[in-house]
Every structure is written in structure tokens, then in C-alpha cells.
Design a binder for these strands. Structure first.
Lengths: 343, 343
DNA sequence: TTGAAAGCGCTAACAT
DNA sequence: ATGTTAGCGCTTTCAA
């Protein structure tokens, strides 16, 4: 490969001068600089990554880790939209992004996903969550003093930064919107407590509080369906609820877009029609770029911006060599759609 | 950070012995090995990436480059499914994967996406195609002697390997399947010639040849609709065709799954019903994991396996330090579905 | 079986 | 303004 020495030989200077030109240092005669630059261009030289790393201790690479398997359509929509922002920010800063799959906390997968940290192969980590950070990862981060930003699930650690959306407010606001559309009995599709995370439970709390504040004449808790996140059988739970309830709700607020098609199916199988008899509202914002046959009212998270913000926080912490907790919470935008019927 | 020296001090040996233990060299006394291993475990030592790279010239990192923007649902399904296989193979081999966006050939984006190559930050490249490899990338690869495998679009270069599916055969076979379902007038939804690639044109050639061989009583070329790849307006072209044709086909073979929902809409707007009056068949295999409301007959590409194969070819070439062209073509599986009606 | 020395490509600190 | 020296963490000689 082409090294500083090669360039130096061609330009007839010492290699350190080449280093100076590369790093834009001031004390180089304009003429020398030009000579060196010409040699660089001619040879197609770029500073060797390894040499730079060894010296500076920085490798200009971050890891984007996620427990989301790459082939789960709905979840990866989240990941991909976040990635758009991360990638853009990386590109601007000439940082590369290693994409890796982290095991789900609690599962016992036997590969060392922390190897890049231990090897000092990355300067920092963005964890695209939905599940909690594994304990061992936290301790590794602390040990190596690696900054880390989590997107999508509130991290406990005081050393880990957090980028997310205002889920409680979004949940609250969504119910208000549905109420304003004339619905007086609104249900919620949530998750089983075991697969709960802070975000989902925040949306649920928002749902409950809003109905209290709006003066609903029923207990919102009794209209919560708890189900799986990404299962083909979710519709069964929905159907079951609608055949059991005496006063079925006229609108369902699904805690995630991925549940909307399943909810629609369950409602249909219970003999009701969507959206004529039961309205549906989702959460996430990418259902409408899938091929679902109904335009869905949903809550759009600014995912790409969140990715961007996460990268900015991380890069900053890398430069400053700090790992203090920073938090950035984004607002969610309610997006109306045909699935929400005015009554 | 923890270095070989630290381990050596703790274990009371020279740092070179630590290196030997790390690399599993034979000439180390069992007792020494144990002592060193204990020190390694205690300190959580892992060999510094930079040091290793500087020496070996290998960085155990590959780049996965693609001109596919991360937020284009249908195209990223392709990318993601391929990534599953790549990631798995990387993990097994303790290789990391830098994910990057390559500019589309011809566009003038002004960032240096080849920087990681120039810096010798990666040992090889997997290019997830659908578009041709940019010229400058080819010459950079040749210059740096970096092995490269392309998935999804036949590369011209004799130095670049190729993993793909048998598109001509798949196109041919699909028409046969539709014919066997009783259809005697079969159309094709293809792309405008400007956005053509080898794969799409192979599918089209297969379509034409099959109808010739089966003895169709019309010119298949006259039932080809040329349209955009990922546009919301595709349905207009379909509708237009169906309102123009005197003898509209009873089945349409779409060259990509992403066109199927648009085709369905176009046909509906032309006053015909899918699949009762017009059957639809797609190509790719992920439409059925989207939320399209019809189970679609399509052609499934073994994408994850292709990703795996590409990684294997690449890793092998990295080890052998060769860049000879290897080719692996996978068969496509026809998958029946409700969108194909027997007549 | 173990260790010492040299060098991979680069830059910071110190000459000149 | 330019060059020399040393050292980052590691492995490959070569020596003991």
C-alpha cells in the first residue's frame, strides 16, 4: 500500500512533511505543500487507518448495535429510519458505522458481541433499543469508558445517553384526538407485561390518564388488550376481546403500527367493520409506507432526526472524551387517516 | 486501555509470551499459558485492533455498500434479507461489517464513499446492487487489490465476483406456471429501458421465450407495460394499458413484488377485479411479509443464503489474497398464492 | 520454551 | 519551515 514514505520520496521531502500536509498544519511552505499534494494525488495516497488509530487512540468508527433481527419487517422499519439519520451524520463527519446484532437481554447467545469494544475497534456505540441494555454491555462500556447513546428504550445507567420520543404525551394526545373525532369508548392494544418496555407503558399511561381527564364513563383499564408484539396470532386476541366485551369500543388505539393490520383482522372476524364500526389508530408512522390497504391514522416519530441527534451526541462525547448522560426527547406528530372515522 | 504489557506484568512474563498465547502458538508451556490466560481474563484484555492491523495488514472488517437508500421499504427488504446472511457469516468469522451508502452511478454526490478503501479500513467489499458498480469504485478496487462481491446485478469486471439468482429461468418458469393455471394471455410489467438492469431484462427475456415455446397466439412483446420501479404512479400506467388493450391479459407477471399492489390498483381502476378477472404474479418474495391484503403468488429468492455465500466467497478471497471472479447463481422458488386464479 | 529487537504507518515533541 | 527521534500495540524474525 501507499504510505507517507512513498509520497515523501516522490515529492523529495521527509515523511513528516507529508504528515503535516495531510493534517493541514500551518508551518508548511506553500510551494512544498503543492509538491506534496501533487505526489499524494498521483499516488492516490490516503493515510492508513491503522497508523492513525495507533497514534490517536481514535478509530473514527462507531458501532450501531441492535437486538432487532434484520428480517422482521416492522421492527426493521424502525431501525432503518433511524439508520438514515445516523448514516447521514456519520458521512458528514467521516465516521464509519459498524452494524451489529446484539443478543436480546436474557438470551444466551454464545458469541462475543462486545469484541469490537474490547478491541477498541469503535469509539462509541448507538444502541437501537426496544429492549433493555444487557448488563454485561453496561459494565464493558464503563470499563472501556466508551460513550453510548440508546435510541428507543429508557436506559437506567447514568453513563448512557438517551434519545427518544415523548411517549406519555403522545399517548395522551392520541386519545384526545380520537375523543375529538367523537369517540366516547376507546380501547387500547398493549403488550403483555413480560414484553413491556418503558415506551409502551408510557403510551398506556397516557391513554389511561387522558380518558380520566376527559371524563370517560368507563374504566379505561378494562379496555386494554394485552398481546404479542410481532405475531401472526395477535388478531385472535383482538377477536376474542370484541366477542367478549358487552360494550365494545368504537375506536382502538394500537400501541404500535404492527398491530394495526392484526387488529383490523380480529375486528373483522368478530363481525365488525373497520373503520365504519371500529376506528383504528396506530403508533410509529411507517404503516402507511407498507402495502396495508387502509390509510392509517397514526403517530409519526421523527426517527431519522432521532438517529441524527443520537449520532451528534455520540460524536460530541467522543471528542470531549466524556460519558455523561444526555437526553433528547422528540415530539410525536399525530397524522390523521381514513382508519379514524368521525362520529 | 489494557495492553499485552499489562497482562505480561501481571503474569510475570514478557509481552511476547502473551502474544503467543493469544495466537494459540504451540511453543508455550502449559503452565505459562494458564498463568497468562488468567491474567487476560482478570484484566479483560483483548488484542488491540490497531496493533494487529498495523502488523498483519488485515483489519477483519468488510464494507457492505449499497446504492439503496435505507428508507425505501421494498428495496430495503431485499437489502435486509441479504444482510441477515452476511451478518451471520461475519459473526461466525469474527469479522465486522461497515454499512455504507454508495452513490447511484452517474449521480454526483460529493462525499468520498471510497475513503474506507483508500485508508485500508476494510479487507473487502460486498456491493448490494440493483445498479451497476461505479467506474471509480472499480478502479479503486483494482488499485488496492481489494476483493469484491456483487449481489444482485451482473458486474462486467473480471475481478469482481457475482452472487445472484437465475432470472431468465425464473421468468421462463413463472410464465409456464401461469400457463398451467389455464391462462392463455399473459402480460408483463417491466421497467423503462433507462432503469433496466440485467436481472429485469433477463426476467423479461424468459417471459417472451416461454410464451413463444408454449405457442401463445399473440406477440408477448405487445403485452409488456414499461413503468417505474418504486413510484406511487405506477398504477396509472397499468390502468392505461388495461383501458387501451382490446384483449386484455388474464394474468400479469410483475417483474418485482413492489409493482404488485400498484398493478392491483391500476386494474381495479380500469374496472376489473383482482384476482377474479386478472391474476397477478410477483417476483422477490417479501410482498407476503408486508401488509398487502392479498396473498401473492411470487418467486422467492434465497436472499439470506445469497448473502451468506457472498460473504464466504469474500472471506475466502481475503484469506487467499486473490481477486478472481467467482460466480454463484441460485435458483428461485415459485410460490403459489391467492393472486393467481386457476381458469 | 522464552525473550529481545525490529518494524508495520503514523504523529507529538523536540531539534535544527 | 523542515527534519529527527521516539513511541503507540502488535507480530515476525532472530537469539538464547
Amino acid at each position: 500500500m501507499v504510505t507517507q514514505k512513498d509520497v515523501a520520496n516522490l515529492a523529495g521531502v521527509s515523511f513528516i512533511t507529508v504528515s503535516r500536509v495531510i493534517n493541514g498544519e500551518p508551518n508548511v511552505k506553500e510551494e512544498t505543500r503543492k509538491k506534496v499534494q501533487a505526489a499524494i494525488d498521483q499516488l492516490g495516497y490516503a493515510p492508513s487507518f491503522a497508523g492513525q488509530v495507533l497514534n490517536s487512540g481514535r478509530c473514527n468508527t462507531i458501532a450501531v448495535l441492535t437486538p432487532i433481527p434484520f428480517d422482521q419487517t416492522m421492527r426493521t422499519s424502525y431501525l432503518l429510519n433511524v439508520l438514515v439519520g445516523i448514516e447521514e451524520t456519520c458521512r458528514k463527519n467521516e465516521i464509519d458505522m459498524i452494524l451489529g446484532v446484539a443478543p436480546i437481554a436474557g438470551s444466551n447467545q454464545n458469541y462475543d458481541y462486545l469484541r469490537p469494544f474490547k478491541q477498541k475497534k469503535v469509539d462509541g456505540i448507538i444502541y437501537v433499543g426496544l429492549k433493555e441494555l444487557p448488563e454485561e454491555m453496561l459494565s464493558e462500556l464503563a470499563k472501556r469508558k466508551l460513550p453510548c447513546v440508546v435510541i428507543g428504550d429508557r436506559p437506567e445507567s447514568s453513563l448512557v445517553s438517551w434519545v427518544d420520543t415523548a411517549n406519555y404525551e403522545a399517548g395522551y394526545n392520541t386519545v384526545k384526538k380520537i375523543w375529538e373525532a367523537g369517540h366516547r369508548r376507546i380501547g387500547f392494544v398493549g403488550l403483555h407485561r413480560e414484553i413491556y418496555n418503558a415506551n409502551i407503558s408510557d403510551r398506556e399511561r397516557g391513554y389511561i390518564q387522558a380518558l380520566h381527564d376527559l371524563g370517560a364513563d368507563y374504566k379505561p383499564e378494562e379496555y386494554i388488550i394485552r398481546t404479542e408484539f410481532e405475531s401472526k396470532d395477535v388478531y385472535k386476541d383482538i377477536k376474542n376481546a370484541f366477542t367478549t366485551w358487552k360494550n365494545p369500543p368504537t375506536a382502538l388505539f394500537c400501541c404500535a403500527d404492527s398491530l394495526v393490520p392484526q387488529a383490523a383482522r380480529g375486528i373483522n372476524e368478530a363481525g365488525l367493520s373497520v373503520p365504519d364500526q371500529v376506528s383504528l389508530v396506530g403508533f410509529d408512522g411507517f404503516i402507511n409506507s407498507s402495502y396495508f390497504n387502509l390509510n392509517v391514522a397514526t403517530n409519526v416519530q421523527p426517527l431519522s432526526k432521532m438517529g441524527q441527534k443520537a449520532a451528534e451526541i455520540l460524536f460530541n462525547q467522543i471528542s470531549e472524551a466524556t460519558t455523561t448522560k444526555e437526553t433528547a426527547i422528540f415530539n410525536v406528530t399525530f397524522q390523521d387517516g381514513d382508519s379514524l372515522r368521525k362520529i
